[in-house]
C-alpha cells in the first residue's frame, strides 16, 4: 500500500535514458530480448513454414525449412471448407464476450477494490472458486442447464459459458489494478459532483487502461481459441467456431497438418491484430489519465 500514500498526479519516470547506458549493458539488454523473442517466435515461424509446404510434406523424416513454397493449403481452407463462416461466428462470440466480459469484470473489480460491503469476502471467494473447479467436469451439468434454457447450439449459450471463465479471472485481475489507483481520485470526483457511476466511468476506468487492455485481450483469447465448450455446445457445423472447425482436419487416423497449419495461421492473425490494437494502451495508462486530474 506504499503507492496509495503518494500523490495522485504523476509523470512517467525518467529513468536512465539510452544514453546513460553503457555499450555492454545495451548489448546485454538487446541480446536478452532478442533471444527471448526468438524463442517466443520460433514455434510460430515453424507453423508458418509448415503451412506453405505442400499438403503432405509435414510428416517427412527429412526436415527442411522450405519445400516447394505455395499457398495451396490456404486456398483449400478458404475455398473448400466453411472457414469464413466459422470466422464470422468466432468474431461474433469473441467480440461479444470481450465487450460484456470487460464491462462486467470492471464493475465487479471496482466494487471489490473500493468497497467493503456485506458479502464482499463471499464475492471474492466465489470468483476464485469458479476458477478452481475443473472445466472438464463442469461441462456436462452446464450442458444440461443450457439445454433446459434452450441455449444449445446458440451463440449466447457459448458466450455465457465463456463469461463464466473470463469474468472471474478479469475481475480479480482488475481489482489488483484498481487497488493501485489512488483513492483520492475517487474522492476528487465526488467533490466535483460526479455521481458514483460517473466517478467510475470518467475517472477510474481511463486510469485503469493497461489493466483493461490485458483483461480485454484475455477475454478475447479465451473466447477466440476455446475448444472444450465450443466442441460440446455447438452441434451443427453452421455454428462451429474456428477452433472446432479446425478439428475437422483431424480424422480417426490421420491429421491434415497442411490444412491445419494454414488455418492456425489464419486464426492467429486476427488475434495478433487485436493485440496490436490494445497494446498501445499498455504504455499510456496512468500518464495519460493522471495529467488530467
Amino acid at each position: 500500500m506504499t503507492i496509495a500514500a503518494g500523490p495522485a498526479g504523476v509523470g512517467r519516470a525518467k529513468q536512465k535514458g539510452p544514453k546513460g547506458r553503457s555499450t555492454a549493458a545495451s548489448i546485454a539488454l538487446h541480446g536478452t530480448l532478442a533471444v527471448a523473442s526468438l524463442i517466443a517466435v520460433f514455434p510460430v515461424v515453424w507453423l508458418l513454414l509448415t503451412s506453405i509446404k505442400p499438403r503432405n510434406a509435414w510428416d517427412s523424416a527429412t526436415v527442411t525449412l522450405f519445400d516447394h513454397p505455395n499457398l495451396g493449403n490456404y486456398a483449400f481452407v478458404l475455398s473448400q471448407t466453411k472457414f469464413l463462416r466459422w470466422l464470422v461466428n468466432t468474431l461474433i462470440v469473441a467480440g461479444a464476450t470481450t465487450v460484456i466480459g470487460v464491462l462486467l469484470a470492471a464493475s465487479t473489480g471496482y466494487a471489490v477494490s473500493r468497497f467493503r460491503f456485506p458479502g464482499f469476502r463471499s464475492v471474492m471467494w466465489m470468483l476464485l472458486i469458479t476458477q478452481m473447479f475443473p472445466v472438464a467436469i463442469l461441462i456436462v451439468p452446464l450442458y444440461n442447464l443450457m439445454a433446459g434454457l434452450g441455449l444449445i447450439n446458440t451463440f449466447p449459450g457459448l458466450m455465457i459459458a465463456y463469461l463464466t471463465t473470463a469474468v472471474p479471472f478479469c475481475a480479480w485481475m482488475l481489482k489488483g489494478y484498481f487497488d493501485t489507483i489512488p483513492v483520492q481520485i475517487d474522492e476528487a470526483g465526488q467533490v466535483d459532483g460526479l455521481t458514483p457511476f460517473g466517478t467510475f466511468w470518467r475517472l477510474v476506468l481511463p486510469l485503469a487502461k493497461p489493466g483493461l487492455a490485458v483483461a480485454a485481450f484475455y477475454s478475447f483469447i479465451t473466447a477466440w481459441a476455446e475448444v472444450a465448450y465450443a466442441t460440446t455446445f455447438m452441434t451443427g457445423d453452421e455454428s462451429y467456431t474456428l477452433a472446432v472447425g479446425m478439428q475437422s482436419f483431424v480424422s480417426e487416423y490421420r491429421a491434415e497438418w497442411g490444412y491445419m497449419t494454414a488455418s492456425a495461421v489464419l486464426i492467429a492473425i486476427p488475434a495478433a491484430v487485436v493485440f496490436l490494437l490494445v497494446q498501445r494502451h499498455l504504455v499510456t495508462g496512468l500518464t495519460a489519465g493522471a495529467t488530467k486530474s
Binding site: I139, V140, Y143, N144, A147, I152, N153, T231, T232, F233, T235
Partner: peptide, 11 residues
C-alpha cells in the same frame, strides 16, 4: 459429444 447431447435429450 454424442453422449453429452444424448443424455441431455437436446442437441
Amino acid at each position: 459429444k454424442f453422449q453429452t447431447a444424448a443424455q441431455a435429450g437436446s442437441g
